[in-house]
Every structure is written in C-alpha cells, then in structure tokens.
Amino acid sequence: MPHAAIAPLSERDARRIARHAPAADAARFLHPAQQALLHRRGWLSMLAPRSAGGAELPLPQVVRLEEAVAAVDGSMGWVLTLCAGAGWFAGFLAPGMARSIIGTPRVCLGGSGAATGHADEEGDGYRITGSWDYASGAPMATHFTLNAQLRANGVPLLDGAGKPRIRAFLVPAAQVQPVPSWNSLGMRASASHSYRIDGQWLGKEHGFTISPDTATADGPLYRYPFYSLAYVTLAANVAGMASHFMKLAEECMRHRRHARAGLPLLQVPAVADLLQSKQDAFAAARARFYAELDGSWATVAAGSSLEADAMQAVQASSLALVAAARAAVDDLYPYCGLYAAREDSTINRVWRDFHTASQHALLLP
C-alpha cells in the first residue's frame, strides 16, 4: 500500500490483529499475519521522512493509530510504536543513509536507548562493543539503534561538563547478535529481547544526534522534541490497553453476580457507579491528553518551537492519562472473577500486557 494511503485502523485490520493475538502470545512473537500487516500498511516507516521513502505522518495521526492497535493487541501496538519510533531517527541521518535504510525490504528498526556499550574511534568510523536490553520486535528487525559512550584509544571522551560523550548509532542486523531474554509476564509477543555487538566496525555515517538542530529532514515531525514524542506514544499504548480492559471488564461484570446482594454486578449501584467513575475519569484524562498533543503539534507545525512549559504540559497530560488507566484497571480487576485470572482468557492477556507495558521507566509517576 502506498504510504500516502495510510489510514486509521480499519475494522477489518482490527479483526485480523485480534484473531492472531492469542497465538502470538503463546508463540512469544507476533503472528506472521500480524507482521505482514505491519509491512503491508507501511506502519513501521510512518514516522520516517518522505524524502527517505517513509510516510512522515502528522504525529497526532500516528498516536491515534498506535492507541487503536494497542486497544486490539498490546504487544502489536508496542512493537508498532517502538519500531516506528526508531524509524523516526531516519530524519537525523545523512539523507543517502536514510534512503538506504528505509528502502530496505520489510524494513524494521528496533533498539534500546540505554548507553550500555562503547564506540572506539577507528579510522573514519567506530568499533562498537556492548550489550543492550529490551529491543521490542527484535526477531523482525533489519537494523538496531543504540547509544554508546565514545572513546579514543580506550579513553572515554568527555563533554564540556566532564561527562561521557554519548552518540546514537544505527547498525545493520547482520552485525548484531540477538540474545533471547524476554520472559515477561505480559507483552510476550513483543519479543523485547536483548542484543549484543562484539567489536563491529561502522562508518561514521551510521551515527547521529537527536536534536531539532541536527535534523537532516525538513518538516515539523523532526522539530518535535524527542521526549515529548516518547511520552505521547507510550501513553497512548497504555491507554489503548486500558480501554480494551475496561470493555472486557464490563462484560465480565455483566455476567457475574454479587455474592451477598444476589444481583448481577452491574445492577449493584455501588459497582455500577465505580465502573462509570473509572470510565469518566479515563475519558477526561484522554481528552486532556489529546488536547495537549494536538495543541503542541499545531505549535510545531506552524514553525515555532515548544517552550519548556509546553513540553511539561505534554508530559503531565501523558502521565495523568497513564495514572487514570492504572486506576481503572486496578480498581475494576477484582470484579472480573476467576475468569480474569485464567491465563488463556483475553482479559487476562490484556491485564498482563497492561501491567508489563506500564512498567516502562518513562511512565513512573
């Protein structure tokens, strides 16, 4: 499908994703039909520059799509978000390198933001060694991103403040050794494995710096602050999983009876009020979140930079949405019965996915 035709999640695609989610969870990686859909729709390069062959979609459209996919299958939403987010880095690479990477058949970029390796200057490039964790979508990655501490002759290079200099790199999968390590309670199909690199040499064109001042692609997407982008995309995933859980929880509560009152749970006023209050609080937080996202995007799209208070507002609305999602899931779960504790039930998988994804360090209150 041409990138220009990328659209919000259709009912047909949602059914296809949902149909294969249980098998993906059991296999601990996305089902081949889910992977094929990611590639066919061009979603993995939707944040990459048009000049490099990507879609370069407006951020609010991207975030809404990611939330919609996560509301069907948390693992697929997470892989889409993290891998498409890594594709955004193409906007900071040399244009020729960006075109080469995004033009790779079935391109998928995975990686880690931790600086748990080092890059030694060698000739016109760097020799990289280290290990990194939590590369979502690792089995399908054609390239891996990473951060590394720079060294010269084995001595760490320091910045003006005396801190180690860190540089981001994009490495072809052929130079990377995956390390199966993802054994989480939930998000099993995200296959967020570790990976290592042992003394592989890379030309300097594989390195990049993430900053509006160093963007090599025009357009507001590459002037939108990195951490603001990270907050909104991660929060949208958590929101999608929470909305899925609330829908399934309401169905459980419709069929379960209150032991003392002898009534279906939803006919018990206190229980019905609790459900409604959680739905209302979540909806209000979600509305504020999208108001901040849309407003911040409009500012950047108009050619202005986000000031510190605007970035803080984006972060605050993202964390408030995550908090409302946590409150809804945690407070409604006890009313869902033992069915929700069955590992083979959909609501249990969604609960596990939610509580794994919401552990991301950026989402701490």
Rank of each mutant, 00 (worst) to 15 (best):
P2K: 10
P2Q: 11
H3K: 09
A4H: 07
A5H: 06
I6V: 05
I6P: 00
L9I: 09
S10H: 02
D13I: 01
R19N: 11
A23P: 06
D25G: 15
A27F: 07
P32L: 10
Q34D: 12
A36C: 12
R41L: 03
G42E: 00
W43H: 03
M46K: 03
M46V: 01
A48R: 00
P49H: 00
S51A: 14
G54D: 00
L59T: 01
L59P: 03
P60A: 13
A68V: 08
V69T: 03
A71Q: 12
A71H: 09
G77P: 02
L80G: 00
T81R: 11
G96M: 07
A98M: 00
T104F: 05
G113D: 02
A114T: 14
A115M: 08
G123E: 05
G125A: 08
T129G: 01
W132A: 01
Y134D: 12
A135N: 01
P139A: 08
M140E: 15
F144I: 06
T145N: 07
N147P: 06
A152C: 10
N153P: 13
V155N: 05
V155H: 10
L157N: 01
L157K: 07
D159R: 06
G160V: 07
G160C: 05
G162P: 02
R165V: 14
I166A: 07
I166F: 08
V171C: 09
P172K: 05
A173I: 05
W182Q: 04
S184E: 15
S184F: 11
G186S: 05
G186H: 01
A189Q: 08
A189E: 08
H193S: 08
Y195D: 02
Y195G: 02
D198W: 04
W201P: 00
L202D: 06
G203D: 12
T209H: 13
T209G: 09
P212A: 02
A215L: 05
A215V: 04
A217L: 03
P220K: 03
Y222S: 03
Y224S: 04
Y227H: 15
L229F: 15
A230K: 10
V232S: 08
V232P: 03
T233C: 11
A235L: 04
V238T: 10
V238K: 02
A239T: 06
G240R: 02
M241F: 11
K247E: 14
E250M: 11
M253L: 10
M253G: 06
H255I: 12
H255A: 13
A259K: 15
L266S: 06
Q267Y: 10
A270C: 13
V271S: 05
L274C: 07
Q276A: 12
S277H: 12
A281C: 11
A285P: 03
R286P: 08
A291H: 13
L293V: 11
G295V: 09
W297E: 03
A298N: 06
A298R: 10
T299Y: 05
T299W: 04
A302P: 06
D309V: 07
A310E: 14
Q315E: 11
Q315Y: 08
A316I: 09
A316G: 10
S317L: 14
A320Y: 07
A323I: 07
A328D: 04
V329E: 00
L332P: 03
L338H: 13
Y339L: 15
I347Q: 01
R349Q: 11
H355Y: 10
T356P: 07
T356I: 11
H360I: 14
L363N: 01
P365K: 08
P365H: 09
